[in-house]
Design a protein around this nucleic acid. Structure first.
Length: 314
DNA sequence: ATCGGGATTGCCT
DNA sequence: GGCAATCCCGATG
């Protein structure tokens, strides 16, 4: 197999991470409140540094190479992709695949099916409203493609990708699981009541904090570069075309009701009819074009959903 | 130093 | 559909 050498974590770095991982791992492989994710959430900063996923694979110059396969280089989204306006990027991300390479080499993949644009500036709903820059939201002001991870409600995380524009970023809201579903299910189950029913595939990543759990995205990924990081990146699927406008529903963003007129901006985007979307907005779907002319629909159909589920785009 | 709220989720009725 | 969980961050004094 052809390997191309770039700068970032090599084999030795990987081994070192794995050993540290074992050293800090709980005795039971998967135990509620003792898995790595939980540890990450509750650990003090000093303790946090010892978890494998939070060890900075970029820190040590002597262990700083990573071998990307030719395939990886062809499909990985490079930095110019992220350099577009916030709303444009939010739509362009739909259909792209988020990849997470875990410390043990396991790769988890999910297709992005729902996003929200937070352009910043006047937008009161954004963490960067009014150009406000804080320790938390610094990543929103960094170069397009920078990951912004923030904690919410004390117990969850949300992942964003910065775009062009001061303080602008796109929230990732839902993924369609493509690879590593058993691992995702394990990561998600660790936070749930013992003995709870098994989650369906479409429930693994259908929410902003769910996808962070399922892909093991920790807080310390904040400010990393999605275009060059060895542990997380974005791919386009081969032989697929971008989502057509009629495949994309735009609706008001979720959970920001208190922000008045800004809550009404239709800056949530999702793939029409996709079963992994977290919240379907029938009103918005009725209003936006959907490929079929309204005159093609019987009156009863025009008022209900289109019957599409799990739409697979070509 | 203290205080209030949050780009959510899961469980319960 | 209601509501508790849970804590970091930013605002305020």
């Amino acid at each position: 197999m052809l390997f191309l050498k770039l700068s970032r974590g090599n084999v030795m770095a990987g081994r070192k991470r794995k050993m540290l991982s074992i050293a800090s791992a709980p005795v039971k492989a998967v135990n509620k409140h003792e898995d790595g994710t939980d540890l990450e959430m509750k650990a003090s900063p000093a303790k946090l540094e010892k978890t494998s996923q939070c060890e900075d694979a970029r820190g040590d110059d002597t262990e700083r190479s990573h071998y990307f396969t030719k395939n990886e280089l062809q499909q990985r989204q490079r930095e110019d992709f992220f350099n577009q306006s916030c709303i444009s990027l939010a739509k362009a991300l739909l259909g792209k695949v988020l990849v997470r390479r875990c410390a043990d080499g396991t790769e988890l993949r999910g297709r992005i099916v729902e996003t929200e644009a937070y352009p910043g500036g006047e937008d009161k709903a954004s963490h960067s409203a009014g150009g406000k820059r804080t320790a938390r939201n610094t990543a929103m002001f960094m170069k397009p493609g920078t990951i912004y991870v923030y904690p919410i409600y004390g117990i969850y995380l949300c992942m964003n990708v910065s775009s062009e524009g001061e303080g602008a970023a796109v929230l990732l809201r839902s993924l369609e699981p493509l690879q590593g579903q058993p691992v995702m299910r394990q990561l998600r189950a660790a936070r749930r009541k013992e003995g709870a029913r098994q989650l369906k595939d479409k429930e693994l990543c259908n929410g902003p904090s769910k996808l962070c759990q399922a892909l093991d995205i920790p807080r310390c990924f904040d400010r990393r570069d999605l275009a060059s990081d060895p542990e997380v990146w974005l791919e386009r699927e081969p032989n697929t075309s971008p989502a057509e406008p009629h495949d994309i529903v735009s609706a008001p963003r979720i959970g920001i009701e208190s922000h008045g007129e800004w809550a009404k901006k239709p800056w949530r985007f999702y793939l029409r009819g996709h079963s992994c979307v977290s919240v379907v907005n029938k009103e918005a779907e009725r209003q936006s074009p959907c490929g079929l002319e309204m005159s093609d629909l019987a009156p009863s159909e025009a008022q209900s959903d289109t019957g599409q589920h799990n739409v697979k785009r070509t």
